[in-house]
Amino acid sequence: MTEKPMRRKVDLTDPRALRAYAHPTRMTLVGLLRREGPCTATRAAELTGESVASCSYHLRMLAKYGLVEEEDPGGPGREKPWRATADATDWPNYSDDPAVTAAAEALTLAVAENYFHRMTQAWEAHHRLSREWREAERFTDTTLYLTPGELTDLGARIDALVAEYAVRNLDPARRPEGARRVPYLQVAYVAPESGPEPAPGSAREPAPAARPGEEP
Results as ranks from 00 to 15, higher is better:
Ala136Gly: 02
Val68Tyr: 06
Arg35Pro: 00
Met27Lys: 04
Gly37Trp: 11
Leu185Phe: 08
Ala104Leu: 11
Gly31Leu: 08
Arg128Gln: 14
Trp123Lys: 13
Ile158Gly: 00
Pro200Trp: 04
Ala102Asp: 15
Arg134Leu: 03
Trp91Asp: 03
Glu79Cys: 03
Arg175Met: 10
Tyr145Pro: 00
Pro15Gly: 10
Val68Thr: 15
Glu69Met: 13
Arg19Pro: 02
Arg134Asn: 05
Ala125Asp: 15
Glu215Ala: 09
Asp159Met: 01
Lys80Phe: 03
Pro38Glu: 09
Leu59His: 05
Ala179Cys: 09
Glu205His: 07
His127Glu: 14
His127Lys: 10
Lys4Gly: 02
Arg134Cys: 06
Lys80Trp: 04
Thr152Lys: 11
Phe116Ser: 13
Glu135Cys: 03
Pro200Glu: 13
Val68Pro: 06
His127Asp: 15
Arg16Phe: 10
Asp153Leu: 07
His126Trp: 13
Glu164Cys: 02
Glu69Pro: 04
Leu146Ser: 07
Tyr115Pro: 00
Met27Tyr: 03
Ala99Val: 05
Tyr189Glu: 05
Phe139Met: 12
Gly75Asp: 11
Phe139Asp: 06
Arg180Cys: 02
Pro216Lys: 01
Tyr184Ser: 14
Thr101Pro: 01
Pro76Met: 08
Pro208Val: 08
Pro196Phe: 08
Arg168Gly: 04
Thr85Pro: 08
Glu105Ala: 15
Gly77Gln: 11
Arg19Ala: 14
Ala199Cys: 01
Leu32Cys: 07
Gly155Phe: 01
Ser54Asp: 09
Thr140Phe: 12
Ala17Asp: 11
His23Gly: 03
Leu185Tyr: 09
Pro5Ala: 10
Ala45Glu: 04
Thr140Ile: 11
Gly37Gln: 09
Pro198Ile: 06
Ser130Arg: 06
Arg118Ile: 03
